[in-house]
């Protein structure tokens, strides 16, 4: 079922429409919540609130192609609300100079290959743990942009609409987020003898 068909079922209140909606977006929204809110309990709240809120208001959505963006707009706002209730952090932008690698850093060092063979499950698991930790270390406003662009594959324009920020800000935050993740992964390799 494509998004147009799903939206039609939702608008027509067809039996099973909500279940189909949860099947389509449940995992992605929960995953987004886990990575943004950190704690599983908060992620559960975000998933529940978002899916119900989004579902109720989707009936007003005119364009099926905007369905996914719309859902992520709701989930991004829900995560930001959770953040505001917790520790307050300003959306300070990190100067690019602070993220430039040092003159002596060795870039020939290997970040693990993303496509290991079946006999390298342990390496894969350790790599994923390192990536997860690197993402968790990002300031939330950078993490959100990285997730929308590199995990959910929204375009720069879509991410700017979802977050209601200029495209130039999306690009700036994405670049800084990627630089920080690279820095962490290169650093995380330094201590385990794989360099």
């Amino acid at each position: 079922m494509d998004n147009a068909e799903l939206l039609r079922k939702i608008r027509d209140d067809e039996p099973g429409a909500f279940e189909a909606f949860v099947d389509r977006f449940g995992d992605r929204i929960y995953g987004f919540g886990v990575r943004m809110c950190g704690e599983r309990e908060d992620a559960r709240d975000v998933a529940q609130d978002t899916l119900l809120q989004a579902y109720r208001s989707l009936k007003k959505l005119k364009h099926p192609e905007a369905l996914r963006s719309w859902v992520f707009r709701v989930v991004s706002n829900a995560c930001l609300m959770k953040r505001r209730k917790g520790n307050y952090q300003t959306n300070r932008e990190i100067p690019l100079e602070d993220l430039m690698p040092g003159e002596s850093e060795d870039f020939s060092a290997a970040i693990p290959d993303p496509a290991p063979g079946a006999d390298e499950e342990l390496v894969l698991s350790e790599t994923r743990e390192a990536v997860r930790a690197a993402i968790d270390l990002l300031p939330p406003h950078y993490r959100m942009v990285l997730m929308l662009r590199d995990m959910e594959h929204f375009s720069t324009r879509e991410a700017s609409e979802i977050l209601d920020i200029p495209e130039s800000t999306v690009k700036m935050r994405l670049h800084r987020a990627r630089l920080m993740v690279r820095g962490e992964l290169a650093g995380s390799e330094a201590g385990n003898g794989q360099r």
Partner: peptide, 11 residues
């Protein structure tokens, strides 16, 4: 590596 991260399942 970021792109290849698995998505947690909705419990």
């Amino acid at each position: 590596l970021v792109e290849g991260m698995p998505c947690p399942k909705l419990p």
